[in-house]
Nucleic acid binder design. Sequence first.
DNA 1: ACATTGACCTGAGAGC
DNA 2: TGCTCTCAGGTCAATG
Length: 263
Amino acid sequence: MPELPDVEVFRKYMDATSLNQKIEEVEVKAERILQNISPGELTAGLKGNRFESTKRYGKYLFAHLDNRSWLIMHFGMTGFLEYFKELNQAPSHVRLLITFTNGYHLAYDCQRKLGQLDLVNSVKNFVKQRGLGPDVLDPNFDFNSFKQTLSRSRAMIKSALMDQERMAGIGNIYADEILFQAGVHPKLKINQLPEKRLKEIYHQMKNILKEAIDYQADPSKMPDFWLLPKRDPGAQCPACGGEIEKIKVSGRSAYLCPNCQIK
DNA sequence: ACATTGACCTGAGAGC
DNA sequence: TGCTCTCAGGTCAATG
Protein backbone atom coordinates (compact mmCIF):
# COMPACT_ATOMS: atom_id res chain seq x y z
CA MET A 1 0.00 0.00 0.00
CA PRO A 2 2.27 2.76 1.14
CA GLU A 3 4.18 4.27 -1.73
CA LEU A 4 4.33 7.99 -2.43
CA PRO A 5 0.66 8.42 -3.44
CA ASP A 6 -0.62 6.43 -0.47
CA VAL A 7 1.52 8.39 1.95
CA GLU A 8 0.33 11.67 0.43
CA VAL A 9 -3.24 10.52 0.97
CA PHE A 10 -2.40 9.69 4.60
CA ARG A 11 -0.90 13.15 4.95
CA LYS A 12 -4.06 14.83 3.76
CA TYR A 13 -6.11 12.56 5.98
CA MET A 14 -4.06 13.58 8.96
CA ASP A 15 -4.47 17.25 8.05
CA ALA A 16 -8.21 16.80 7.82
CA THR A 17 -8.56 14.98 11.11
CA SER A 18 -5.75 15.34 13.57
CA LEU A 19 -4.28 18.83 13.60
CA ASN A 20 -4.42 21.24 16.53
CA GLN A 21 -5.89 18.86 19.02
CA LYS A 22 -4.21 18.18 22.30
CA ILE A 23 -2.81 14.68 22.70
CA GLU A 24 -4.10 13.22 25.89
CA GLU A 25 -2.94 9.61 25.78
CA VAL A 26 -0.36 7.64 23.85
CA GLU A 27 -0.15 3.88 23.74
CA VAL A 28 2.72 2.06 22.07
CA LYS A 29 1.49 -1.42 21.28
CA ALA A 30 4.47 -2.76 19.38
CA GLU A 31 7.88 -1.66 20.47
CA ARG A 32 9.58 -3.09 17.41
CA ILE A 33 8.07 -0.32 15.26
CA LEU A 34 10.11 2.27 17.14
CA GLN A 35 13.44 3.21 15.62
CA ASN A 36 15.78 5.04 17.99
CA ILE A 37 13.37 5.79 20.74
CA SER A 38 11.80 4.00 23.68
CA PRO A 39 8.05 3.79 24.24
CA GLY A 40 8.45 6.10 27.21
CA GLU A 41 10.33 8.69 25.21
CA LEU A 42 7.81 8.63 22.39
CA THR A 43 4.92 8.93 24.81
CA ALA A 44 6.58 11.80 26.63
CA GLY A 45 7.37 13.53 23.35
CA LEU A 46 3.78 13.42 22.18
CA LYS A 47 1.66 13.76 25.28
CA GLY A 48 0.29 17.21 25.98
CA ASN A 49 1.31 18.45 22.53
CA ARG A 50 -0.53 19.07 19.28
CA PHE A 51 0.22 18.28 15.66
CA GLU A 52 0.49 21.57 13.81
CA SER A 53 1.31 20.58 10.27
CA THR A 54 2.46 17.69 8.13
CA LYS A 55 5.01 17.04 5.44
CA ARG A 56 5.80 14.17 3.15
CA TYR A 57 9.12 13.16 1.67
CA GLY A 58 9.22 10.06 -0.48
CA LYS A 59 7.40 7.37 1.48
CA TYR A 60 7.87 9.14 4.81
CA LEU A 61 5.26 11.20 6.61
CA PHE A 62 6.28 13.84 9.14
CA ALA A 63 3.98 15.48 11.64
CA HIS A 64 5.20 18.68 13.28
CA LEU A 65 4.43 19.08 16.95
CA ASP A 66 4.07 22.33 18.83
CA ASN A 67 7.11 21.36 20.89
CA ARG A 68 8.97 21.67 17.58
CA SER A 69 9.89 18.04 17.12
CA TRP A 70 8.64 15.82 14.31
CA LEU A 71 6.91 12.49 14.49
CA ILE A 72 8.23 10.38 11.64
CA MET A 73 6.07 7.68 10.16
CA HIS A 74 7.05 5.06 7.64
CA PHE A 75 4.40 2.55 6.67
CA GLY A 76 6.34 -0.51 5.61
CA MET A 77 4.20 -2.80 3.48
CA THR A 78 0.99 -2.70 5.45
CA GLY A 79 0.76 0.55 7.38
CA PHE A 80 -2.04 3.14 7.37
CA LEU A 81 -3.73 5.71 9.59
CA GLU A 82 -7.23 5.62 10.98
CA TYR A 83 -9.12 8.31 12.89
CA PHE A 84 -12.15 7.19 14.83
CA LYS A 85 -14.22 7.85 17.91
CA GLU A 86 -15.11 4.57 19.51
CA LEU A 87 -12.45 2.02 20.34
CA ASN A 88 -14.55 -0.75 18.87
CA GLN A 89 -14.07 0.97 15.52
CA ALA A 90 -10.31 0.52 15.77
CA PRO A 91 -8.60 -1.36 12.95
CA SER A 92 -7.11 -4.79 13.62
CA HIS A 93 -3.40 -4.18 14.01
CA VAL A 94 -2.95 -0.93 15.87
CA ARG A 95 0.70 -0.38 16.81
CA LEU A 96 0.41 3.19 18.07
CA LEU A 97 -2.74 4.67 19.52
CA ILE A 98 -3.04 8.39 20.07
CA THR A 99 -6.02 9.77 21.95
CA PHE A 100 -6.93 13.43 21.69
CA THR A 101 -8.73 15.45 24.32
CA ASN A 102 -11.80 15.56 22.06
CA GLY A 103 -12.14 11.82 22.66
CA TYR A 104 -11.16 10.76 19.16
CA HIS A 105 -8.27 8.44 18.39
CA LEU A 106 -5.64 8.36 15.69
CA ALA A 107 -4.25 4.87 15.12
CA TYR A 108 -1.13 3.88 13.28
CA ASP A 109 -1.96 0.38 12.08
CA CYS A 110 0.67 -1.93 10.65
CA GLN A 111 -0.04 -5.60 10.33
CA ARG A 112 3.46 -6.79 9.52
CA LYS A 113 5.31 -4.39 11.78
CA LEU A 114 7.68 -3.45 9.01
CA GLY A 115 6.95 0.24 9.43
CA GLN A 116 8.92 2.67 11.53
CA LEU A 117 8.15 5.45 13.97
CA ASP A 118 10.56 7.95 15.45
CA LEU A 119 10.84 11.45 16.81
CA VAL A 120 13.42 13.85 15.35
CA ASN A 121 14.27 17.53 15.45
CA SER A 122 15.00 18.11 11.81
CA VAL A 123 13.44 16.67 8.69
CA LYS A 124 16.34 17.90 6.63
CA ASN A 125 18.85 16.03 8.75
CA PHE A 126 16.71 12.93 8.75
CA VAL A 127 16.51 12.90 4.96
CA LYS A 128 20.22 13.46 4.70
CA GLN A 129 21.10 10.82 7.23
CA ARG A 130 18.84 8.32 5.46
CA GLY A 131 20.54 9.16 2.20
CA LEU A 132 17.23 9.71 0.43
CA GLY A 133 17.33 11.06 -3.09
CA PRO A 134 15.06 13.90 -4.17
CA ASP A 135 11.33 13.44 -3.70
CA VAL A 136 10.00 12.30 -7.04
CA LEU A 137 7.22 14.91 -7.09
CA ASP A 138 9.47 17.80 -6.12
CA PRO A 139 9.14 20.31 -8.98
CA ASN A 140 12.90 20.81 -8.76
CA PHE A 141 13.37 17.18 -9.68
CA ASP A 142 13.28 17.94 -13.39
CA PHE A 143 14.23 15.78 -16.34
CA ASN A 144 17.86 16.80 -16.16
CA SER A 145 18.12 15.77 -12.52
CA PHE A 146 16.37 12.51 -13.37
CA LYS A 147 18.80 11.83 -16.20
CA GLN A 148 21.69 12.79 -13.98
CA THR A 149 20.84 10.38 -11.20
CA LEU A 150 20.64 7.56 -13.74
CA SER A 151 23.69 8.46 -15.75
CA ARG A 152 26.42 5.88 -16.13
CA SER A 153 24.29 3.28 -14.36
CA ARG A 154 24.00 -0.26 -15.61
CA ALA A 155 21.14 -1.15 -13.27
CA MET A 156 17.78 -2.43 -14.46
CA ILE A 157 15.37 0.46 -14.91
CA LYS A 158 12.82 -0.88 -12.44
CA SER A 159 15.41 -1.26 -9.69
CA ALA A 160 16.65 2.26 -10.32
CA LEU A 161 13.15 3.77 -10.09
CA MET A 162 12.67 2.01 -6.77
CA ASP A 163 16.06 2.96 -5.38
CA GLN A 164 15.22 5.47 -2.65
CA GLU A 165 18.76 6.84 -2.68
CA ARG A 166 18.41 7.80 -6.32
CA MET A 167 14.90 9.23 -5.97
CA ALA A 168 12.40 8.83 -3.17
CA GLY A 169 8.80 7.66 -3.38
CA ILE A 170 8.38 4.92 -5.97
CA GLY A 171 7.73 1.35 -4.84
CA ASN A 172 6.93 -1.92 -6.50
CA ILE A 173 3.50 -1.31 -7.92
CA TYR A 174 3.92 2.24 -9.16
CA ALA A 175 7.20 1.25 -10.78
CA ASP A 176 5.25 -1.38 -12.70
CA GLU A 177 2.58 1.14 -13.69
CA ILE A 178 5.11 3.71 -14.86
CA LEU A 179 6.98 1.19 -16.99
CA PHE A 180 3.77 -0.23 -18.40
CA GLN A 181 2.53 3.20 -19.47
CA ALA A 182 5.93 4.04 -20.88
CA GLY A 183 6.05 0.75 -22.77
CA VAL A 184 9.38 -0.20 -21.23
CA HIS A 185 10.36 -3.65 -20.01
CA PRO A 186 11.36 -3.57 -16.31
CA LYS A 187 14.54 -5.55 -16.90
CA LEU A 188 15.97 -3.18 -19.47
CA LYS A 189 19.23 -1.64 -18.36
CA ILE A 190 19.37 2.11 -18.12
CA ASN A 191 22.22 2.32 -20.59
CA GLN A 192 20.05 0.49 -23.13
CA LEU A 193 17.48 3.27 -23.01
CA PRO A 194 17.79 6.20 -25.39
CA GLU A 195 16.95 9.65 -24.10
CA LYS A 196 13.56 9.55 -25.78
CA ARG A 197 12.55 6.52 -23.70
CA LEU A 198 13.89 8.07 -20.52
CA LYS A 199 11.83 11.15 -21.22
CA GLU A 200 8.73 9.04 -21.60
CA ILE A 201 9.43 7.28 -18.30
CA TYR A 202 10.01 10.60 -16.57
CA HIS A 203 6.80 12.03 -17.96
CA GLN A 204 4.75 8.97 -16.95
CA MET A 205 6.34 8.93 -13.52
CA LYS A 206 5.25 12.46 -12.71
CA ASN A 207 1.77 12.07 -14.16
CA ILE A 208 0.92 8.69 -12.74
CA LEU A 209 1.95 9.62 -9.22
CA LYS A 210 0.00 12.88 -9.32
CA GLU A 211 -3.07 11.24 -10.75
CA ALA A 212 -2.87 8.38 -8.27
CA ILE A 213 -3.10 10.96 -5.49
CA ASP A 214 -6.20 12.41 -7.18
CA TYR A 215 -7.67 8.90 -7.14
CA GLN A 216 -6.89 8.70 -3.41
CA ALA A 217 -4.45 5.90 -4.32
CA ASP A 218 -7.53 3.70 -4.57
CA PRO A 219 -7.20 1.12 -7.37
CA SER A 220 -10.96 0.93 -7.81
CA LYS A 221 -10.98 4.60 -8.86
CA MET A 222 -8.17 4.29 -11.37
CA PRO A 223 -8.86 4.38 -15.11
CA ASP A 224 -9.34 1.27 -17.21
CA PHE A 225 -6.12 1.74 -19.09
CA TRP A 226 -4.06 1.42 -15.92
CA LEU A 227 -2.34 -1.83 -15.07
CA LEU A 228 -2.41 -1.38 -11.32
CA PRO A 229 -5.94 -2.61 -10.62
CA LYS A 230 -5.24 -5.70 -12.74
CA ARG A 231 -2.17 -7.10 -11.03
CA ASP A 232 -2.94 -10.68 -11.69
CA PRO A 233 -1.16 -13.17 -13.91
CA GLY A 234 -3.54 -14.02 -16.70
CA ALA A 235 -5.33 -10.69 -16.56
CA GLN A 236 -5.84 -8.90 -19.85
CA CYS A 237 -3.52 -6.13 -20.91
CA PRO A 238 -5.64 -2.97 -20.99
CA ALA A 239 -3.79 -1.83 -24.10
CA CYS A 240 -3.54 -4.88 -26.36
CA GLY A 241 -5.74 -7.48 -24.69
CA GLY A 242 -2.82 -9.88 -24.35
CA GLU A 243 -2.00 -11.77 -21.21
CA ILE A 244 -0.31 -10.03 -18.29
CA GLU A 245 2.83 -11.78 -17.17
CA LYS A 246 4.38 -12.02 -13.73
CA ILE A 247 8.14 -12.22 -13.36
CA LYS A 248 10.73 -11.52 -10.69
CA VAL A 249 12.80 -8.38 -10.89
CA SER A 250 15.25 -7.64 -8.09
CA GLY A 251 13.45 -10.07 -5.85
CA ARG A 252 10.01 -8.52 -6.28
CA SER A 253 7.04 -9.48 -8.38
CA ALA A 254 6.79 -7.46 -11.55
CA TYR A 255 3.64 -7.45 -13.66
CA LEU A 256 3.95 -6.51 -17.30
CA CYS A 257 2.63 -7.00 -20.78
CA PRO A 258 5.31 -8.81 -22.80
CA ASN A 259 3.70 -7.52 -25.96
CA CYS A 260 3.58 -3.82 -25.04
CA GLN A 261 6.78 -3.71 -23.03
CA ILE A 262 9.49 -4.91 -25.34
CA LYS A 263 12.94 -5.81 -24.12
C1' DA B 1 28.04 -1.80 -9.17
C1' DC B 2 24.59 -4.60 -9.37
C1' DA B 3 21.54 -8.91 -8.80
C1' DT B 4 19.88 -12.26 -5.71
C1' DT B 5 18.52 -14.21 -1.49
C1' DG B 6 16.91 -14.29 2.98
C1' DA B 7 15.60 -11.99 7.18
C1' DC B 8 12.51 -9.13 9.54
C1' DC B 9 7.00 -9.82 10.88
C1' DT B 10 1.95 -11.18 10.60
C1' DG B 11 -2.09 -12.80 8.57
C1' DA B 12 -5.22 -12.88 4.33
C1' DG B 13 -6.50 -15.78 0.87
C1' DA B 14 -6.03 -19.81 -2.01
C1' DG B 15 -6.07 -24.61 -2.45
C1' DC B 16 -7.11 -28.92 -0.60
C1' DT C 1 -14.72 -26.11 8.49
C1' DG C 2 -10.04 -26.41 9.11
C1' DC C 3 -5.48 -27.06 7.79
C1' DT C 4 -1.32 -25.81 5.05
C1' DC C 5 0.98 -23.10 1.86
C1' DT C 6 2.12 -18.99 -0.59
C1' DC C 7 2.26 -14.42 -0.95
C1' DA C 8 2.19 -9.45 0.31
C1' DG C 9 2.67 -2.17 -2.10
C1' DG C 10 9.52 -2.11 2.21
C1' DT C 11 14.18 -2.13 3.76
C1' DC C 12 18.48 -4.10 5.20
C1' DA C 13 22.54 -7.17 5.22
C1' DA C 14 25.15 -10.83 3.33
C1' DT C 15 26.78 -13.12 -0.75
C1' DG C 16 28.16 -13.86 -5.65
